[in-house]
Computed example of a mutant assay.
Amino acid sequence: MTRVNWRKSTYSGGEAAQCVELASLDGSVGIRDSKNPHVPHITIGREALASLLDQIKSGHLNL
């Protein structure tokens, strides 16, 4: 079993911050809640993640 290296942004503001963590998986990216690391994560393709981030940064999503 390969150990997965979960990472969160240095901008997350410490341990109590509400943020997500990302991990590089075989050809995809895992996304999980940093406050609940033991619950299942979601997996998304790298291109889909890049598109999602572009939409968030450009303000096209109502978040």
Score class of each variant (00 low, 15 high):
His38Asn: 12
Gln18Val: 14
Ala50His: 10
Arg32Asp: 06
Asp26Gly: 15
Val20Ala: 09
Pro40Ala: 14
Glu47Gln: 12
Lys57Val: 08
Val29Ala: 02
Arg7Trp: 00
His41Ser: 14
Lys35Asn: 08
Ile44Asp: 01
Ile56Gly: 05
Thr10Phe: 03
Ile42Gln: 10
Asp33Ser: 06
His38Tyr: 07
Leu22Phe: 15
Trp6His: 09
His60Ala: 15
Ser51Val: 07
Lys35Trp: 00
His60Leu: 06
Thr10Met: 05
Val20Phe: 04
Tyr11Lys: 13
Asn5Ala: 08
Ile42Leu: 15
Gly13Trp: 07
His60Cys: 02
Asn5Gly: 00
Met1Arg: 09
Leu49Cys: 02
Thr43Phe: 00
Ile44Val: 15
Ser24Ala: 15
Gln18Arg: 14
Leu53Ile: 15
Leu52Gly: 02
Asn5Trp: 00
Leu53Met: 12
Ile42Asp: 00
Ser24Thr: 12
Thr10Asn: 11
Ser34Glu: 02
His41Leu: 03
Val29Gln: 02
Glu21Lys: 06
Val39Ala: 14
Arg46Thr: 04
Leu52Lys: 03
Asn36Asp: 15
Trp6Phe: 09
Gly30Asp: 05
Ile42Pro: 04
Arg32Trp: 08
Gly27His: 04
Gly59His: 05
Ala16Ser: 13
Ala48Tyr: 00
Gln18His: 14
Gly27Lys: 05
Arg32His: 08
Asp54Ile: 02
Leu53Cys: 06
Cys19Gln: 06
Ser28Asp: 07
Asp54Gly: 14
Asn62Ile: 07
Ser28Ile: 00
Ser24Val: 10
Leu53Thr: 03
Met1His: 04
Asp54Gln: 12
Trp6Lys: 06
Glu47Leu: 01
Pro40Thr: 06
His38Lys: 10
Leu22Tyr: 13
Ile31Phe: 04
Glu21Ala: 13
Met1Pro: 07
Lys35Ala: 12
Gly45Arg: 08
Thr43Lys: 11
Gly59Arg: 05
Val39Lys: 12
Asn36Leu: 13
Gly27Val: 08
Tyr11Gln: 11
Ala16Gly: 12
Ile42Glu: 01
Ser51Ala: 13
Asn62Trp: 03
Ser9Cys: 10
Trp6Val: 07
Pro37Cys: 08
Val20His: 07
Lys57His: 11
His41Cys: 13
Glu21Tyr: 06
Glu47Lys: 09
